[in-house]
Amino acid sequence: MTDGTGAVRLATAHDVDAIFDVRIGVRENVLTRAELTERGITREAVLAMIDEASCVWVVEVDSEVVGFSMADAEDACVFAAFVRPDQEGKGLGSVLMAAAEAFLFEHHERIWLETAYASRARGFYERRGWVQVAALADGDVRMEKVVPGRAISPG
């Protein structure tokens, strides 16, 4: 899958270090490698997602991984979507989200994610048709999206 600026493909074990480099290099929702490990997001956990579920995608520009997305098919959620700051605004996040959404819609009619209310990401998701359905205690919001053509109702 490509939008003319980057090629999206399923991630492989060779992409894990690049995925972590992208994740710790973001401007918002910043976490260190140690903080990711505390949350259970380890090299082994990412490798398992790649090997067992085929639910991690990367986008490359000039053969370099510059973004990724992850989905959890069992839980129906987009787990992560990040693009390197120097590659923002080129449509790469949109193609990564399209891959995750298509995968999840193969298994579910309603999918979800959580993001910070005050983040730029919330606006990005809204422009892609995601709807806020709940405000969470920590300043995050739960957003949902349904199979295209269906209406979404809160709750």
Rank of each mutant, 00 (worst) to 15 (best):
G4T: 08
T5G: 12
G6Q: 00
V8M: 10
T12Y: 07
D15P: 02
V16G: 08
V16E: 08
A18M: 06
I19N: 07
F20S: 12
V22I: 05
G25Y: 09
V26Q: 02
V26D: 02
E28K: 02
E28N: 03
E28H: 04
V30E: 01
V30N: 01
V30H: 00
V30K: 01
L31Y: 12
L31R: 08
T32N: 11
R33C: 01
E35H: 04
E35L: 11
E38D: 15
E38V: 08
G40S: 13
I41Y: 02
T42S: 15
E44T: 09
A45D: 06
V46R: 03
V46F: 06
L47N: 08
L47A: 04
M49C: 07
D51A: 15
E52K: 08
A53P: 01
S54D: 15
V56G: 09
W57G: 06
W57N: 03
W57L: 10
V58W: 00
V59C: 10
V61Y: 10
D62N: 06
S63M: 11
E64M: 12
E64T: 11
G67A: 07
F68M: 12
F68P: 00
S69K: 00
M70F: 01
D72P: 05
E74K: 11
A80Q: 14
F82T: 02
R84D: 13
P85W: 01
P85M: 09
Q87E: 11
G89V: 03
K90F: 03
K90C: 07
K90S: 10
G91R: 10
G91E: 07
L92V: 11
V95Y: 02
A98F: 05
A99V: 07
A99W: 09
A100W: 01
F103S: 10
F105S: 09
F105Y: 10
E106N: 14
E106A: 13
H107I: 07
H108F: 07
A116Q: 14
Y117H: 05
A118R: 10
A118K: 08
A118M: 06
S119V: 04
S119E: 11
A121S: 13
A121I: 02
G123D: 03
E126F: 09
E126R: 12
R127M: 08
R128T: 04
G129H: 03
G129S: 12
W130P: 05
V131Y: 07
V131W: 08
V133E: 13
A137D: 15
D138L: 10
D140K: 13
V141N: 03
R142F: 00
R142A: 11
V146K: 04
V147E: 14
A151Q: 11
I152M: 03
I152S: 03
S153R: 14
P154G: 06
P154M: 12
G155M: 09
